[in-house]
Simulated assay, not measured.
Amino acid sequence: MTATADLVARARSGDEEAFRALTEPHRRELQVHCYRMLGSVQDAEDTLQDTLLAAWQGLGGYEGRASVRTWLYRIATNRCLNARRSASRRAAKEWNVPGVEPPEPTRLGEVVWLEPCPEAVVEGALATPLGPEARYEQSESVSLAFVTALQVLPPRQTAVLILRDVLGFHAAEVAEMMDATVASVTSALKRARSGLERRRPELPEGQAPPAPGSPAEDELVSRFVTAYEAADVDAVVEMLTDDVFMSMPPMPLEYEGRDVVARFCRGILGTHRRFDLVPTRANGQPAFGAYLHTPSGIRHGTGLIVITLAGDRISAVSRFESSVLPWFGLPRSLPDR
């Protein structure tokens, strides 16, 4: 009997430690799979727990024809599909920054339920080897732009694209997971690729982001922090690409283009509001807890800012609510200095 078969047999007899040994190696990648499918860290965690419960209860039906990993992905994918069909997504919120009137948005975004994913979760998943069919770099496959684009695809197309092009499963494996034919999987993948390409921002040649943790990235991050904390709007704007994109889920306001983003930044930073930025990472990208100075000296957390780099510029800025700060090990407030 193989080690896996022994663990399965013990788990079937009620051995919870054996079940954890079977599933724990795949936990992080399953969590990120659910996050890609759902766009929400909270929904992904709930669906992961639902997946593990279903696996525990369904061990009697596991026949060993596929690996435990593939079997778990089948359960997780179908739980995510159910969640996408039945979910009451997080509602959009109105602008809530006192004393600041935002400019007219370029448009209103659809994916107001999007949440940033902590680096600890991302790193655990990206260490997993991909299958031979994978088409995307692992860092791109967790970026905010990629996850956002996935949310507006039909659910089954999203699942097929993730399983085939992100994780690299063969078409026959995906068909088995989704109780479908290879032909229907191939057709769904073609439509998903077309839909994704229409929604993903194009990256001009030579505009690849610097490697995470590289001197080039560190220099850009340092410049951004210095300019933002000094409320030097001109310096912040100078770092932006011409087609920079700004979003702020769960508020639907979206801005595209340097001029309108500059007006937004002047509204935030040009009203004697001062912030401290505490660096972290989200979705494989530089991120910052933003803390507003107050007359009492205590700096209150107002949100999480995530920036997308393109060459030596910033091509996107995403701002999330302060409720996400604890996910990144950041406090709700900082004491007086």
Results as ranks from 00 to 15, higher is better:
60 G>N: 08
51 T>C: 15
80 C>K: 11
275 F>N: 03
50 D>S: 11
46 D>S: 08
257 G>E: 09
303 G>H: 02
179 D>M: 13
125 A>Y: 14
12 R>Y: 04
67 S>D: 12
229 E>D: 11
81 L>V: 13
77 T>R: 11
235 A>I: 10
309 L>V: 01
220 L>H: 08
154 P>C: 07
31 Q>G: 00
279 P>H: 14
111 V>K: 03
160 V>K: 06
266 R>E: 07
215 P>Y: 00
140 E>A: 10
135 R>W: 14
4 T>H: 02
125 A>W: 13
295 P>S: 14
323 S>K: 03
156 R>S: 04
39 G>M: 11
273 R>W: 01
211 A>V: 14
260 V>P: 00
275 F>W: 05
221 V>Q: 10
52 L>M: 13
122 V>I: 15
148 T>F: 06
80 C>P: 09
23 T>V: 10
168 G>Q: 01
270 G>R: 09
78 N>R: 15
307 I>G: 11
45 E>P: 00
189 L>C: 11
256 E>A: 14
46 D>M: 13
24 E>V: 05
244 V>Y: 07
59 L>G: 02
127 A>I: 15
182 V>T: 12
201 P>L: 02
120 A>L: 04
64 G>W: 09
139 S>Q: 12
225 V>E: 12
291 Y>P: 08
150 L>K: 05
275 F>Y: 14
334 L>S: 09
135 R>K: 15
118 P>T: 15
245 F>W: 14
156 R>D: 05
88 S>N: 05
284 G>V: 01
80 C>T: 08
124 G>L: 05
105 P>D: 00
31 Q>E: 08
335 P>C: 05
155 P>W: 15
63 E>C: 07
176 E>R: 14
160 V>G: 07
108 L>H: 09
242 D>N: 05
169 F>W: 06
281 R>C: 13
302 T>G: 03
3 A>I: 03
103 P>Y: 03
236 V>I: 15
88 S>C: 04
254 E>T: 15
71 W>T: 05
18 A>Y: 02
212 P>R: 04
191 R>T: 02
309 L>S: 07
242 D>L: 06
219 E>Y: 09
63 E>Q: 08
29 E>D: 09
308 T>K: 06
41 V>H: 09
2 T>N: 11
35 Y>R: 08
282 A>Y: 01
22 L>P: 00
190 K>E: 15
152 V>T: 15
46 D>N: 07
332 R>T: 08
172 A>S: 11
292 L>D: 05
224 F>R: 10
31 Q>W: 06
152 V>S: 10
218 D>G: 05
295 P>C: 11
250 P>F: 09
71 W>Q: 03
